[in-house]
Amino acid sequence: MASSRFQFFDRGRGIEWRLVSANNRELGRAARSYPLLPDTVAAVDALRAEADAAVHWLEQDESGRWRWKASLRGEVVAAASRDYLRRAECEAALGLFRDAARTATAQPVVHRFLPAVGTPARAQELLDTARRRVRVQS
């Protein structure tokens, strides 16, 4: 049976994580990126181990939309993946994140998201560069 899991990805500005449910809906994501995969995995491990000690809160922006955030030891570590129109929806989404974060699995595999490029040759160049980075970091 599928379960919630942490996924790791790189969009060109460092390694980030996100928590997805068993049906692949994103429940929350890292509040920051990390330079290397081991740093990101350590952040996820800390979140799982200290989930009960995390401080959670809701924020409403000037347009009236709601978002949640979570912190550990005074550092913001997680945030909502999207805005919510209603406070109750935001609270429910936070509850799903909190429950899933305690038991979610994490496989340290990085998914790469390359920026949009104009030509197939440029896309291949960026892909080759990303592959070289992985070899250097390993």
Rank of each mutant, 00 (worst) to 15 (best):
A2Q: 13
S4H: 11
R5Y: 04
F8K: 01
F9M: 02
F9Y: 15
D10H: 04
R11G: 15
G12W: 02
I15G: 03
W17H: 06
W17P: 05
R18V: 10
R18H: 06
R18S: 14
V20G: 07
A22M: 10
A22Q: 13
N24S: 14
R25Y: 12
E26D: 08
E26V: 14
L27T: 09
L27P: 14
G28V: 07
A31P: 10
S33P: 05
A42L: 05
L47N: 06
E50R: 10
D52P: 01
W57P: 06
W57L: 03
Q60L: 04
Q60C: 13
S63E: 15
R65N: 15
R65S: 15
A70V: 12
G74P: 11
G74L: 07
E75S: 09
V77E: 13
A79S: 13
S81D: 13
D83Q: 07
Y84I: 09
R87M: 07
R87Y: 02
A88K: 06
A92Q: 10
G95A: 03
L96Q: 10
F97W: 14
R98L: 07
A101K: 02
A101M: 03
T105H: 08
T105S: 15
A106H: 11
A106P: 03
V109M: 04
A116V: 12
T119V: 01
T119R: 01
E125M: 12
L126V: 02
L126D: 07
L126G: 12
L126T: 04
R131Q: 11
R133Y: 00
R133E: 15
R135C: 12
R135H: 11
V136M: 13
